[in-house]
Structures are given as structure tokens and as C-alpha cells.
Design a protein around this nucleic acid. Structure first.
Length: 553
RNA sequence: UGGGUUAUGGUGUAAAGGUAGCACAACAGAUUUUGAUUCUGUUUGUCUAGGUUCGAAUCCUAGUAACCCAACCA
């Protein structure tokens, strides 16, 4: 490794800050709102924030941005913590914006005392109207010039619960004609008589994002507060509040959120998919949520690797899903044990093999010596993949066909002698003879065959349900298409095979284990699985050069 | 005649005035008891127009395009 990996723009900033002695160590934070499940976009942010403090001296806090009691729940807090841990990261402190409600309240009083905040009795509509538009300046509210004493009194009474939801707000007094809409007297407190998941009914006024996030950063002495690009205009307000409050100067830096092709990545859209039952839940294996991907069989390692590979920058992007698949296969290829499973079975009878006999054959568990071997039962009747036989072989076909020879993986070379069709012309059985001297490991026959296929002994096979997943959407960027993004849902994103045949050992595959079903892809047991009724999810297919060959013709 | 952000192959990302590189994808070939893996090779790019310079993705000028901002959401 002679090449040093170049720094992204945040690393450059941090190295400069460290070199200049601005900080001796850094503090970052991951600030989810507990109102939904984490998805791949969050994974980028997690890898970034936690990764930075692994690379540089310092630590990362987990802080829940729980300032809106109406949408937030403890269920989400738990899932978020689980997902971060699963991804392989540890936070220094588990914190909540609601921990700071008292400090935040005092900050608001400070602002009022400085003449920099006022209580506004306008309705939401009036506030919106007076706000102006991006191209027209706003107008001052008639409540803008209340006295400090009156503001103090009113704000205290807001806190004491004397007013109804929506009847009054506390606003920062900045400039209604500012070119930045966010500086036009932003709301900083609103009344919500709602039960908060942590503070219960203690408060009926809650700070807005802009009056909670930066102040929480400051209280925690966050040095580098990293968020996505849509918060760029908020930075001016972030800095203004810190300056006026004269508190620790945290700094905000923004990067472009990551988009992945063939999926959507907004909480709002994901919530719709769940609520409208287009998927079976937040952890549906087709979802780009961390929990969904975990259930699908993705490894934390592959996700971290992916985040590292795509890097961070400030430009709009749509990352190819195939890069994620590449990272997944790369990891699974050297960690997943191999196994044999027949998904679309057809009976293969070895005509010259003695009925009632079973041989135990040795097969390697994977390409690495350290993965070891296992025994597989072999007998006269086997299941093989229907697609591995062609009655009339295509060009360059080197699997089974009348008269053709193939190797049964880890077993014998066989020669196809015939096949049986039913009245509908459907092939129901294939007959073949095995060549006795060709057993794997001890083949001295000198016979060369081009194709190797997988199989399962019919008498020993374990029946299982297998769920095949494909991309959730038919188009690369469903959000940018005409009409509703849901119009582009892939109707074939889930295909269930009710009865596939697996090699016996798979009956007791533990949760969290991952396999490569030889020639078919990577699979893992689903949470619905049990030894009585095994269920496997297909995580990702193997690359398939034959499909390409077929498509060419 | 609002403000802000961003433009490098199909995709993502490097190059801090000096050979446009890396990865994915695609394509071609070699190896293979997984048509997998592995290995080798190939194609494709600096938003546009001017300018400065021996030399520009990089500096200057003028354009163009995309995205964000008018929630008592974060």
C-alpha cells in the first residue's frame, strides 16, 4: 500500500483544525429523530460521523433529536440503537435533545432579555403570509415590538400551559426582509400539549429544530456538526443563535445525501410503503432500511465498505445499486459457507446406481481451506435444477442435454440417457448413468466435462420456503419520474418458492448464518424460519455469465 | 434584477497550474469440479464560450444546467 487514500473535504477541514491547534480532539454526533427506522442514507451519516472519530482523536455522541412529541416514540429509539450497534459502532454518550429542555428554555429567556425574541399571537396562516416568498420580502408582525417584560410574561404563561396549541409562538427577532427565508424571524418555540416519550407531561412548549439542534451541539461541545446539504441555509441561523447566546461555537458542515438507484430513501416515502402495505413492514427485506437489509442478509461489513467506497462530497448523486451488490458479494464470497439447494426441482434418476444405497460424499464448505468440509448424502434419485437441462441444447450450452455429460458437484460425472414427458409435454424426469471411476477427489478417468451442476439427494432433502427478492422499483430514480413514485413499484420484487429442496444440514441453519447456495446466490434464514419449516431469503444472486449469453442471442 | 449549493466517462470519486487516476458497470479473453471467484486487456469523461499562461479540470470573465429555501417537521 504505497498510495495514500486522498482525504474528503471534511477530513481536510479536520486535519487543518487539528494542525492549527483549534482543537486537540474532535467531537461529532449522530442526531436521528426517533420517528422512523434508519435507512442506507443514515448508514452513510453513521459511518461518516463515527468513522471520523475512529480516524482522529475524539468521540461521537448519539443524540436523539426528540423535540416533536407528536411523532416520536420509544420503539424507534430502540430500533435506532440496535441498528447502529449492528453496523459496528459505539457512541460515547447516549443523549436526547429533551435532556436540555430546561437549558433551552433558559436560552430563550436570554434571547427575550436581549430583545432578540418575541411572542407572536399570529396564526400559522398569518405568519406564513407575512413571511413573504423567496423573491419578495416579508412584513413585520404587529406583535413584533412587544416589550421585554410583556414577552417574558407571555412566554412564562406559554410554558405554564395557559394557552392553547397554536395560539402563540416565540420567534427570534432578526429581519423580516432577509434574503434567507430562515432568518425572517424564525419560530423557536411552539405550544404542544402532547405527551413526550421521555419528559412526559412536564412541558407543553417545545423548541423547534433550529433552536434545539445547534444549542444541543454547543452544550455537548460538538466540534464538527455534520449534516446534509438541505441544511446549508440553516447555518446562518445556527451561527446567529450561537453568537447571540454566547455559547460554545460548534460549527456545521454539510455534505450531499446519498441516493441509491432503484429505491427511495426518504422517511416519508418509506413510511408510505409500509402504511399502504406495498411491503410487509419496516424490516421487509426489500426495504433500504438497515433492519430490512439485515433481514435480507446484508453484512455490516459490506455496508461499511460501501459507504467508504462511495465517499462523501457536496454534489447531487445517484449511486449505482450494483456497487452495493459488489461490496456484498465481495464480503460474502469469502465468509459464506457453500451449500446445495435446488430451487426449481426436477427428478434425476441414476439408472445404474443401486437403489437403497446411500454414499456420504465430501464437499468443501468454501474456497478457503479454513472453511473445512462436510458430508453430503448421495443416492439413486436426486433433485436437480430444471433449468440445468435442455432438451435441445443451445449454442455454448454445457449443462445437461440428451447424450451430454456433466459433473454432479462433489460427486460423479453422469451422462444423460433420456427423459420422460407427461401428457402436456412437460418434462417430469431425467435419466442418466453415472461413470463409476469419476468420483470427486479420486477421479482418474481422464474425462473432461465443461459443466458442473448442483443436486440434492431426494430421499434426504429438506423442504424449505425460499423468498427471492428483486429491486423494489422498476426505474433508477422513482422520485424523479412523472407522477407518483409508487407507480413505479416492481410488481415482481418478491417471488416465493413454496417448496425447494435443500441439503440436510440446512435444516438447522442458525439465525444470522449466511450461505452461498452453489450457482444460485447468497441466502440466509429468515426470522420466520424454524427447523420444522425452514425459510430462506435470497440476499443477492451470483453474477451470471450465462444469462448474458442468452440475452445476446 | 431573491438567496444558497453544485457541475470530471453510464455511475461514484480523485487530481490544490505540470502524464486526467481509482472503483463499480459494460465489453473481450485466460483459468475454473460454482457459466461464481480469480487474472489479463479494452471502450467511455473535465457543462458552454471567451481569456490569462510555455502549460488550465484547476486561475479570470460571461453564460448554461441541476438541486435546496416560503412546515407551529427534522
Amino acid at each position: 500500500m504505497s498510495e495514500e487514500k486522498s482525504l474528503n473535504f471534511l477530513e481536510e477541514i479536520i486535519e487543518a483544525d487539528l494542525a492549527a491547534g483549534k482543537y486537540k480532539s474532535i467531537v461529532t454526533r449522530f442526531p436521528p429523530e426517533p420517528n422512523g427506522y434508519l435507512h442506507m442514507g443514515h448508514a452513510t451519516s453513521i459511518c461518516l460521523n463515527f468513522g471520523l472519530t475512529k480516524k482522529y482523536p475524539g468521540y461521537t455522541n448519539l443524540r436523539f433529536d426528540d423535540t416533536n412529541p407528536v411523532t416520536e416514540e420509544t420503539e424507534y429509539v430502540d430500533s435506532i440503537k440496535e441498528d447502529i450497534k449492528w453496523l459496528g459502532f459505539d457512541w460515547k454518550n447516549e443523549l436526547y435533545a429533551s435532556d436540555y429542555f430546561e437549558e433551552l428554555y433558559q436560552y430563550a429567556i436570554t434571547l427575550i432579555n436581549k430583545g432578540l425574541a418575541y411572542v407572536d399571537d399570529s396564526t400559522a396562516e398569518e405568519i406564513a403570509t407575512l413571511k413573504g416568498t423567496p423573491t419578495e420580502p416579508g412584513k413585520d408582525s404587529s406583535y413584533r415590538n412587544r416589550s421585554i417584560a410583556e414577552n417574558l410574561d407571555l412566554f412564562t404563561r406559554m410554558k405554564n400551559g395557559e394557552f392553547a396549541d397554536g395560539s402563540r409562538t416565540l420567534r427570534a427577532k432578526i429581519d423580516m426582509a432577509h434574503t434567507n427565508m430562515l432568518m425572517r424571524d424564525p419560530l423557536i418555540y411552539r405550544i404542544k400539549h402532547a405527551h413526550h416519550h421521555r419528559t412526559g407531561d412536564t412541558w407543553c412548549i417545545y423548541p423547534m429544530y433550529d433552536f434545539a439542534h445547534g444549542q444541543s451541539d454547543s452544550l455537548e461541545q460538538i466540534t464538527h456538526s455534520i449534516c446534509t446539504l438541505e441544511f446549508v441555509p440553516h447555518r446562518e441561523l445556527y451561527d446567529w443563535l450561537i453568537e447571540k447566546l454566547e455559547i460554545f461555537p460548534s460549527h456545521q458542515y454539510e455534505f450531499a445525501r446519498r441516493n441509491l438507484s432503484y429505491t427511495v430513501m426518504s422517511k416519508r416515502k418509506l413510511l408510505q410503503l409500509v402504511n399502504e402495505k406495498h411491503v410487509q413492514g419496516w424490516d421487509d427485506p426489500r426495504m433500504p432500511t438497515i433492519s430490512g437489509m439485515r433481514r435480507r442478509g446484508f453484512t455490516a461489513e459490506s455496508i461499511r465498505n460501501f459507504c467508504d467506497k462511495i465517499g462523501i462530497a457536496k454534489r447531487e448523486n445517484l449511486t449505482d445499486f450494483s456497487l452495493l451488490e459488489f461490496c456484498l458479494r465481495e464480503d460474502l464470497n469469502h465468509t459464506a459457507h457453500r451449500a446445495m439447494a435446488v430451487l426449481d426441482p426436477i427428478k434425476l434418476v441414476i439408472t445404474n446406481y443401486e437403489a437403497g444405497t446411500t454414499e456420504e460424499l465430501t464437499s468443501e464448505n468454501g474456497p478457503l481451506e479454513t472453511m473445512g468440509t462436510r458430508l453430503l448424502p448421495f443416492s439413486k434419485e436426486l433433485w436437480i435444477e430444471r433449468e440445468d437441462f435442455m432438451e435441445v441444447p443451445a449454442k455454448k450450452w454445457f449443462r445437461l442435454a440428451p447424450g451430454a455429460m456433466v459433473r454432479l458437484k462433489s460427486a460423479y460425472i453422469i451422462k444423460c440417457e433420456g427423459f420422460t414427458k407427461d401428457e402436456n409435454g412437460q418434462i417430469t424426469e431425467i435419466q442418466a448413468s453415472y461413470i463409476p471411476g469419476t468420483k470427486s477427489g479420486g477421479d482418474e478417468s481422464g474425462i473432461q466435462v465443461k459443466g458442473t451442476i448442483h443436486w440434492v439427494s431426494a430421499a434426504h432433502a429438506v423442504r424449505a420456503e425460499i423468498r427471492l427478492y428483486d429491486r423494489l422499483f422498476k426505474v433508477e430514480d422513482p422520485s424523479s419520474e412523472e407522477g407518483d413514485f409508487k407507480d413505479y413499484i416492481n410488481p415482481d420484487s418478491l417471488q416465493v418458492i413454496k417448496e425447494a429442496y435443500l441439503e440436510p444440514a440446512l435444516q438447522h441453519a442458525p439465525m444470522g448464518s449466511r450461505y452461498q447456495f452453489i450457482r444460485k446466490g447468497y441466502f440466509c434464514p429468515d426470522k420466520d424460519s424454524s427447523p420444522e419449516k425452514p425459510v430462506f431469503n435470497r440476499t443477492v444472486t451470483l453474477k451470471d455469465a450465462w444469462i448474458k449469453e442468452v440475452k445476446k442471442n
